[in-house]
């Protein structure tokens, strides 16, 4: 119904977010507790990594601040996609309870409705922690961010956020067929995050290939950040800047195809 009074998808999403935040702020105490808890758990995680480096020095030639850049970028991206697409994470429950029918009755994109269904402010703990680790690492490396460096960093964050969001969508799409076997997908989403917090070069070749060509996390992790840390030639930096968005877009398209197939399957089974 374009024309007078029409509200576009982005604006509608923001309305959902603002309402959701307002209702979460009503329970102020629980909000603060959750935020602190989220900060503490992610904080302890990095403290653990730092302790290991204090004992062993380097990890296959990577120093702690260098690994910290990987860790910071991936955690910022994961927090963003978790905040943006958290609804997909809890989507299987929605299919199981039949609440998905309600979304089908509304004249809006299903993806938008699912994504906006649950926006969690508490997740900003991870965002904050990722930012702090990234800032600490960059200043320890005495790395001055050039324009090219900032671009590489931004592309790394955005690419990772898109890949994680696509993973959430693919996982949700699977729920149209089966509600039980989602643990397997969790190993890819949460396992993928764990993996990508470190430079991919520390892993075995088949594992690296999987996270380059199947799940293109290398475009958000090793390729841009390695260039950033080692001041490689601008030409290869330019190549990565072009390739990363393409890889992310391809992966996201595959997830959307799976999602549409899932919706069609739901239409034809009704369960």
């Amino acid at each position: 119904m374009p024309g007078h009074g029409h509200i576009n998808g982005m604006k509608l999403y923001l309305r959902y977010v603002s309402i959701s935040i307002r209702s979460q702020l009503q329970h102020r105490a629980s909000f603060v507790m959750m935020l602190l808890g989220s900060l503490l758990t992610t904080g302890i995680e990095f403290a653990g990594i730092a302790a290991l480096f204090a004992r062993f020095g380097t990890l296959r030639g990577w120093s702690l601040p260098e690994v910290g850049v990987f860790y910071g970028v991936i955690n910022i991206a994961f927090a963003l996609s978790e905040g943006f697409a958290r609804g997909f994470d809890t989507f299987p429950a929605m299919v199981k309870s039949g609440d998905f029918d309600r979304l089908l009755l509304r004249p809006r994109s299903l993806c938008l409705q699912v994504a906006a269904g649950e926006v969690q402010l508490m997740r900003s703990g991870r965002l904050l922690q990722g930012g702090v680790v990234l800032w600490w690492s960059l200043s320890n490396l005495h790395l001055v961010l050039t324009r090219l460096g900032s671009a590489l960093l931004a592309v790394a964050v955005v690419t990772a956020a898109v890949v994680f969001t696509a993973l959430f969508i693919a996982q949700a799409a699977l729920a149209f067929w089966t509600v039980e076997s989602l643990e397997i997908m969790n190993t890819v989403t949460y396992g993928g995050t764990e993996t990508a917090q470190y430079p991919l070069t520390i892993y075995r070749p088949w594992f690296r290939r999987f996270f380059t060509f199947v799940i293109p996390i290398a475009f958000a992790n090793y390729l841009p950040i390695n260039l950033l840390l080692h001041h490689s030639a601008p030409l290869s930096a330019f190549a990565v800047l072009c390739a990363a968005p393409i890889a992310a877009a391809l992966f996201a398209s595959a997830a959307m195809i799976a999602w549409s197939a899932g919706v069609r399957h739901y239409h034809s089974t009704g369960s």
Partner: peptide, 23 residues
């Protein structure tokens, strides 16, 4: 089964529906 948002006041649900249907 309700079509409204469980945690939201009724008026907020109504406002959100206004935006969803672009009334």
């Amino acid at each position: 089964r309700t079509q409204l948002w469980w945690d939201l006041p009724v008026t907020d649900s109504f406002d959100l529906l206004r935006d969803i249907y672009s009334v």
